[in-house]
Design a protein around this nucleic acid. Structure first.
Length: 354
DNA sequence: AATCCGGGGCG
DNA sequence: CGCCCAGGATT
């Protein structure tokens, strides 16, 4: 356990005050804006989340605006950011705060933790930044910085590791300015104690850093290996009717892209050709429903869409249809629906930007 | 304790 | 190509 807590905290905060990025959520203590920024930034780089934060603040200036919005509209704004359960939980929590809490967020760690989509990290961030509570945040930056400076090799992605690092951070936090401390240690991890090739010779902690002293910077933090990536095979059926209409379906149930829209899709256990596709029972019922006249393969080489834990080997089949089904929508309206990046890429490729 | 959930940037 | 990102929910 660290013995030089005051020194660590003071040096860290001094560094932070001299190296503060100008970010929009740093100019407010409004819990709504802090909460919004923290949800958006979960597992997301600041530069990737920033434009989304600006869009949401502009579209929904108050939590009531977010609560009263339609989920489809929120999903559309969230499109491209990934981990879409965040957007659904965002809406649910906005409704709770707006309708059951009189528009005021809980003002303490324990009650913040009860909100959907708010875990230990986010509750600690809001409690410290907005309400000056001494709750230490532990995000990826904190794991990395503490494991190196104090030479902790407990795997960070285990309950034991999470507990140990949370306790360490609690000991280190400056209780007179917890919000500043929390943002300082995250900023330090993001800007200085970076994952690959940090500038240790010039680091403010290098004389005390266990990892630097023992030449183990590249070995910390320790993380249990992830499972191998799975391959899946998606066959999209892109309907084109004579009246320039197509068909989208909303994904429901469990799995990726929940509540996003996509073309009708048949998943197979391997990459298939047209004769094989036409024999599939799911395709035959689809073919009858939409009066298919002709089918052609759009992409000669499959599109390989890479997610963190699975690769999607994708074929787009262009299906010319005679009938105008009631569920068909004009092609020009596809852009109104929240779709996965895989679909967005295909649409702009095939239909062009509109 | 294990598993799932996106997309993008970087070396 | 592997690693990681201002994590959380579910089982």
């Amino acid at each position: 356990m660290p013995k030089n807590s005051p020194s660590f905290s003071n040096k860290l905060i001094t560094w932070y005050l001299q190296n503060t990025r100008d970010l929009p959520w740093r100019t407010t203590n409004n819990p709504y804006y802090i909460w919004l920024s923290e949800i958006i930034l979960q597992q997301t780089r600041v530069l990737q989340g920033l434009p989304y934060y600006l869009k949401f603040v502009e579209t929904y200036p108050k939590v009531e605006d977010l609560a009263n919005a339609h989920e489809d509209e929120i999903m559309k704004l969230w499109q491209g950011l990934g981990y879409y359960s965040r957007a659904r939980n965002l809406h649910a929590t906005a409704k709770i705060v707006s309708e059951e809490m009189n528009g005021a967020f809980p003002n303490n760690y324990k009650d913040l933790l009860k909100l959907k989509g708010v875990g230990d990290y986010t509750a600690s961030a809001i409690a410290s930044i907005c309400f000056n509570q001494p709750e230490a945040v532990v995000d990826g930056n904190v794991y990395r910085t503490l494991s190196r400076v104090f030479g902790i090799s407990t795997p960070i992605n285990t309950p034991a590791g999470q507990k140990e690092f949370k306790q360490m951070a609690q000991l280190l936090i400056d209780k007179t300015q917890p919000g500043t401390f929390n943002q300082a240690i995250m900023e330090f991890g993001a800007r200085y104690c970076v994952p690959q090739n940090p500038d240790c010779p010039n680091c403010i902690f290098n004389e005390n850093c266990k990892a630097f002293q023992h030449n183990k910077v590249s070995e910390l933090p320790v993380k249990i290996k992830a499972k191998p990536i799975k391959k899946r095979y998606f066959n999209y059926l892109v309907v084109l009717s004579v009246k320039e209409k197509t068909v989208l379906r909303q994904r429901t149930g469990k799995g990726i892209w929940h509540r996003l829209y996509e073309f009708p899709m048949i998943e197979t256990s391997e990459d298939i050709n047209l004769p094989t596709l036409e024999k599939l029972p799911k395709f035959q019922s689809f073919s009858e429903e939409f009066q298919i006249e002709n089918i052609s393969l759009y992409n000669e080489k499959p599109v390989i869409h890479k997610l963190s834990h699975q690769h999607l080997i994708t074929r787009f089949w262009i299906v010319e249809s005679r009938e105008n089904s009631e569920v068909a929508i004009p092609v020009s309206e596809i852009g109104n629906y929240a779709v996965p990046v895989l679909i967005e890429n295909f649409v702009s490729d095939f239909f062009g930007n509109y």
